[in-house]
Nucleic acid binder design. Structure first.
Lengths: 154, 154
DNA sequence: CCCATATATATCGTGCACGATATAATCGTA
DNA sequence: TACGATTATATCGTGCACGATATATATGGG
């Protein structure tokens, strides 16, 4: 990073800050998801958990947390809410009783079909050509790698 | 959006979803901010409020909410915490007693100097050339506009 | 002037997210 | 085998964020 002095009048406003772009865009995406997910009785984080389970049932809490970047203190109550709503079941792993494996119920599996239209709706709402979306994905992935690296070293 | 059928085996994983990119990148940025803001005794949303006030003192709760995209139900307690920490004061507007205007204290004004190094640290952690950051800002801004438009019409 | 309506903020209940800590199972090694 | 260290989840307290609702002030039409 350059160390050059910025003029005294340089005062970043939230609207010009990249971190705010991420914050606000993520928020706006959540607003678009909200009515789509409400039909299924899901919140956005709950939907992410189900998407992950649809790619592979029987994951442990830890594996889910690794995929989604969430702690057990977040996942445990979230998963219990999903269990209360009947979309999954929690079961201790027989060969290692420390682990809790999450299994979809029939209702949870069938929900995949009912959610199939959602990615298309979201992609449409983005309103950008596919090439831009690809570039965005790549930029954000590289950025995330860099952010993680800068955290490790400190 | 095209309506063409996707193969039955198409199953988006969170890691390939753009919304997850935004979610995870925003989260990673928060992790980088956290130690920098902890020195000032601030959370990230509190920092955003102060950044906004540094660009113009005496904003109302509603104006802050508009700039940051937050509701009074979020801002009111957040601002009260900042008031308890002595960085700002809340005062009813004399000419319209419905409005609450937020004014920085001396401590709140001085905090701007103590926070001046933060944007540079963050930009460095992004680890991308400035051109990419500009492009990202523009892409996200356009995307946000499109997302908002798609919400209005529905 | 009075009241219906609109506006600005605050309150309440739910859920997400964290760090710190607790608990319980497993593993390594003496 | 016994015990310290590690691992996996759960619990607790704090703060953010929302939608629904309440309260208080302001405004406009009759």
């Amino acid at each position: 990073m350059t160390d050059e002095k910025l003029p005294e009048t340089y005062r970043p406003a939230p609207e010009s800050m990249l971190c705010f772009d991420l914050y606000a865009t993520h928020h706006a995406v959540g607003q678009v998801y909200q009515p789509l997910l409400a039909e299924l009785g899901l919140t956005y984080p709950q939907y992410l958990v189900l998407v992950t389970l649809w790619t592979g049932d029987g994951l442990t809490v830890g594996e889910l947390g690794q995929r989604l970047g969430l702690e057990s203190s977040t996942l445990t109550p979230l998963i219990k809410r999903l269990e209360n709503n009947g979309v999954l079941l929690r079961a201790r792993d027989k060969s290692d009783e420390r682990k809790v494996r999450i299994h979809l119920t029939e209702a949870g599996k069938q929900m995949e079909g009912r959610a199939r239209h959602i990615p298309g709706c979201i992609a449409e709402a983005f309103g950008l050509p596919l090439a831009d979306l690809h570039r965005l994905h790549e930029t954000l992935t590289r950025m995330r790698a860099s952010l993680k690296a800068s955290m490790e070293q400190s």
